[in-house]
Design a protein around this nucleic acid. Structure first.
Lengths: 204, 204
DNA sequence: CGTATCCTCAAACGATCGTTTGATTCCATC
DNA sequence: GATGGAATCAAACGATCGTTTGAGGATACG
């Protein structure tokens, strides 16, 4: 499958799916390379080690995700008026879109796993490479919610993050019904998330 | 350590800590039995298999947790008036208390991991044994939020669950400051959670 | 054709995994 | 004190893990 793509890409795609399904430790290189249709040794040849492969799986999608998030934030920041819902939309919709195009639908599950694992090296990697995105959004939230103390703001952003990660990794009872198109379902999901998060952030 | 407790209890306690730290697959029986100070074969002797041990780790804490949740819910249901905050308190505070007494502080991390793993047999176990608790709380939420459609209600409860699990498994930036007592910190955490969740549930 | 470079391959390496075995110790009951 | 089931122990089982090796194939440039 996917025999047209390069070996590296085939490995990354298969790894993403298998990590989402079985976890980082649960997915073996033998399952992984078999699914990708490449030789077992190809992982260590192209990525050096399994740990580096994990990092690259993250890097490929997070570069997409946070690039789009920053672009969306810049777009609304250039406008005269900005609502809390606008900022939340810039934060949430790129993540939902990732589930749609590029086949990155499984990545949010991988991300949820990464949150659950408290692996320090992975957290450091995430913080160093993408911390500035969170800081930018936090500043925007602070501007729009001037009544909140810094501590309260951090708390609520953390709770929003938890709700989004949980929802987007797809535990929810809510499944797309067959009579609703993928695009429509995504739009409804975004609206639910934004409405809930905005109201939670604005709590008295 | 803990040499007074029974072998089974020692294993369960060590397993809980190690599962929280390394995950179900990442924690080996050799690390686990060494930490508990028992023989390697003791796990299979007392629990049959590693999978059964995982189930028992869940059972021990969830019986506590959901027992207290149901008790708290019964208590407020017997009163003439009930607020949304009351129901949320009955849902949240027992989980926070678990972090305090009984040494179950690490269990919420284990639970967060269980959510991240999409293991079907584990989800079935959770649903069969504790599904009635969620159904009870859902009914109470529905009564207090009559304006919400069933679909909207499910959505929002799911988002609340995500926020709570995330917060309680302790990713947050928020750490307890040294000049704040454990009890005070827990109380502040509960208030943040309840205020955010109530406002999110009440979103227009 | 020669050869240099990148890549792929089957096979093996040592380590660690969950589990099982059979002997031994503990301990309540007679 | 003898007996028998419960519990613990060191040792080994086969399986699987991530990684390494060295030979061979593919391709481009001289």
């Amino acid at each position: 499958m996917n025999s047209s793509a390069s070996t590296k890409e085939r490995i990354l795609t298969a790894a993403e799916a298998l990590f989402a399904q079985r976890g980082f430790e649960g997915a073996s290189l033998r399952q992984l390379t078999a699914a990708a249709g490449v030789n077992l040794a190809a992982v260590n040849y192209h990525f050096g080690s399994k740990d580096h492969l994990v990092e690259q799986v993250f890097k490929r999608r997070l570069d997409q995700l946070n690039g789009r998030r920053m672009a969306a934030l810049r777009l609304i920041a250039s406008q005269p008026e900005t609502s809390l819902e606008d900022v939340l939309s810039a934060f949430i919709r790129p993540a939902l879109d990732l589930s749609h195009d590029g086949g990155g639908g499984l990545f949010m599950r991988v991300l949820a796993r990464a949150f659950a694992e408290h692996d320090d090296s992975l957290r450091k990697f995430l913080s160093e490479n993408y911390g500035h995105v969170m800081r930018q959004f936090t500043a925007e939230f602070a501007r729009l919610l001037p009544g909140l103390s810094k501590e309260e703001l951090y708390w609520r952003i953390d709770l929003v993050t938890g709700a989004l990660t949980h929802a987007m990794s797809g535990f929810g009872i809510i499944q797309r019904k067959s009579d609703v198109s993928e695009v429509t379902h995504r739009e409804q999901t975004a609206e639910h998330l934004i409405r809930f998060a905005a109201s939670g952030l604005r709590a008295p």
